[in-house]
Amino acid sequence: MARDGQNLVLRIGPSYFKNRCAWNTVDKKSSSEQEVPEGKVVVLSFRYLDLESDRLCRYDFVDVYSGHANGQRIGRFCGTVKPGALVSSSNKMLVQMTSDANTAGSGFIAKFSAAEPHERGDQYCGGRLEKPSGSFHTPNWPERDYPAGVTCSWHIVAPKNQLIELKFEKFDVERDNYCRYDYVAVFNGGEINDAKRIGKYCGDSPPEPILSEKNELLVQFLSDLSLTADGFIGHYKFRPKKLPTTTALPTTTTVPATSTVKPTVALCQQKCKRSGTLESNYCSSNFVITGTVITTVTRAGSLHATISIINVYKEGNLAIQQAGKNMSAKILVMCKQCPLIRRGLNYIIMGQVEEDGRGKIYPNSFVMSFKTKNSKILNALKNKTCQN
């Protein structure tokens, strides 16, 4: 990667390191290896960065890996624009610098420290996603704009025989004709590699749905130190590599559509009235959570909602996504008006779960507004033993 230059490889721990990179020697290597304690993650912050500037960072650059050189590459950096805080997925991080024998800058100064995996604050984001379906979003979503100077990488890994389908529900990233400042880049595989880049996106129009070539996708988000915007929320799910044509064709005919619509219409004509109590509905529900409705989308008479979770009292088979310290879940309300839930409000939600891990709410499911005073009875129910 370097042209007649040298590599500096550092395994970082809870201290500072400095590197002055105006070198003239060839093939000189220096390394320092440390780790943060097991159970912690590494947080790296560049305090100063001055390397030879190149749009593709081909000559002098710093690579940051989660774990080691064969692990996920979090990013490659050059020039003078510092990236945001970078977070490893384990207790190890590798920083590797490469420089050629020509133009040089004055180097970089970075600080690294140990942090709790789920107590890293709004500035941190990214991670490894392995559940069959899930969501991820920019820091601060949806309450306020994403912060300046942030770098996030989500590594989505499916089983070997499956592919990954990726869709962005909401999307608002600083607009630029060439997406030079703030952007989302999606790559086939588990590393940032321009040869495997599917696309680079910015502006306020969501990208078209993306299907991976194999069982891994890497989604990178980067914001510079100037303008910011609302950000985005993306959803993914695993799917088989090949769908047999004998099973795929009937979904395009009208017969199955008719057979599925009629029961739904009849279902939604029922009187919408909550029955029973928290106690009487607890055991019959597969999951019980409290949370805030952050997104709602109506499709074919049903309501698809994203819930920012306040507390989990009964998880069941519900797929819960985690981004930093924030947890969320997807809920399908079969009849959009029953029970009626609205964005920005807090609810107690009890329901069943689909095969993909999404919560399903019927008109007779128990949903009610959440008040702080409800916590006492919910905590008592959490310790209740339900008879199968």
Rank of each mutant, 00 (worst) to 15 (best):
K167G: 08
V173W: 03
K373Q: 12
G316T: 04
S133C: 14
D356Q: 04
S113T: 11
L332Q: 10
L381V: 00
K82N: 07
N161Q: 14
Y236G: 01
S226L: 10
P147D: 10
C283W: 01
G351Y: 00
K111G: 15
F370Q: 02
L381Y: 00
L243Y: 05
F77S: 01
S89I: 06
L222E: 10
I349V: 11
A257S: 11
I289W: 01
K273P: 00
K40D: 14
L86P: 02
A110D: 01
L163N: 13
Y16I: 13
Q269V: 04
K325T: 04
H68V: 06
N140C: 03
Y282A: 05
I310S: 09
C57P: 04
T372R: 12
L10N: 12
Q34Y: 07
F287M: 02
F17A: 14
D204Y: 14
T298V: 15
S212D: 07
A158E: 02
R299W: 06
P339L: 10
S375D: 08
A69N: 06
S212W: 04
T25W: 13
T80S: 11
S90T: 14
V95P: 03
C268V: 04
S369A: 13
G5A: 04
R343T: 12
G189S: 07
T254K: 11
T260E: 14
G231S: 03
N311H: 11
S223V: 07
P147K: 09
H235M: 09
I309A: 11
Q34W: 06
A115H: 08
I348N: 02
I74F: 05
K160T: 10
I348Q: 00
S308W: 00
E119N: 15
V43F: 11
L94W: 02
Y183I: 06
Y48C: 05
T252F: 11
G105M: 02
K29A: 09
T247I: 15
T98L: 10
W23M: 02
T254Y: 14
E355D: 12
T228S: 10
I320L: 08
D182C: 05
N286L: 08
G357S: 05
E119V: 07
F366L: 03
A257W: 13
L49K: 03
V157Y: 08
V288E: 01
L267A: 00
S30A: 12
E165F: 13
T296Y: 03
L44K: 01
N281C: 07
N161A: 15
I348S: 02
A104M: 06
E38Q: 13
V9L: 11
